Computed example of a mutant assay.
Amino acid sequence: MSSVNWIRRSARRLGVVALSLGLTAGLGLPMPAGAANEARAPTLEGQRFEGTVNLADRNLRLNGLGLRGVAWIKAFVAGLYLSAPSKDAAQILAMPGPKRIRLKIMLNAPSHELTRSLVGRIEDHESEAVRAKLGERLTGLGTLIDSVGDLKPGDTLDLDFIPDKGVSLRLNDKVIGLPVSGDDLYRCVLKIFVGEHPVDRRMKEGLLRGGY
């Protein structure tokens, strides 16, 4: 099941008509310090991201932001966090250490639709040898994502790689289940976003910005 089908079907089922962004104009008044910091935060389609996060005792930097959507339907904004900024997809895929893919959800959809999209993409574009090596771990990742339940606008879903632990999932800063082992599994997930056959080339371009 493709991501496009997930987005379209979710929109039809929930009667989504349009998504829009509100903009407010300044009135010439001094901006509060907190508001100034928010204004400087990396933002795409109204979704703000922290410039740095801490994962596995490492400070990761936001490498880029990319929108996943079809026409006027916006599914999520993705942010890629790395220990060192890079515009080179191959370098990122080979990069050791912790990584984070953060999704800021922008529509209502059951998490199993995301599972089908991610797992289906790996099954379609990885070799038989790779799929055989992933084995039950790929199914385990799908089960982990399914356990989240319904996703809604405003949710934050993190797909993390933690060395010596594997792929970990967090919803709104809460850890979901247990990690699924293997840097090879996370590499396959990451390739969906920045690999040779990305689910969305415009999103890939944004994620490969090389830092903020």
Rank of each mutant, 00 (worst) to 15 (best):
R8M: 14
R13E: 15
S20Q: 13
A25Y: 07
L27M: 13
G28Y: 02
P30T: 06
M31H: 11
P32H: 10
P32V: 01
G34C: 08
G34A: 13
A36K: 14
A39M: 13
T43L: 13
G46D: 03
G51D: 08
T52W: 07
N54W: 09
A56V: 07
D57W: 07
R58I: 02
G66L: 04
R68W: 01
G69H: 00
V70C: 01
A71K: 12
A78K: 03
L82I: 07
L82K: 08
A84G: 10
I92L: 11
G97K: 06
R102H: 09
I105F: 08
N108Q: 15
A109H: 09
L114Q: 11
E123K: 12
E123H: 11
E126D: 12
E126Q: 14
E128T: 11
T143N: 14
L144F: 06
I145K: 03
D146K: 12
S147F: 07
S147W: 05
L151I: 03
L151C: 05
L151V: 01
P163F: 09
K165M: 13
R170A: 15
L171D: 09
D173C: 05
G177H: 07
P179R: 04
V180D: 00
S181W: 02
C188G: 08
F193G: 01
E196Y: 05
E196K: 15
V199G: 13
D200K: 02
D200I: 06
R209G: 06
G210W: 00
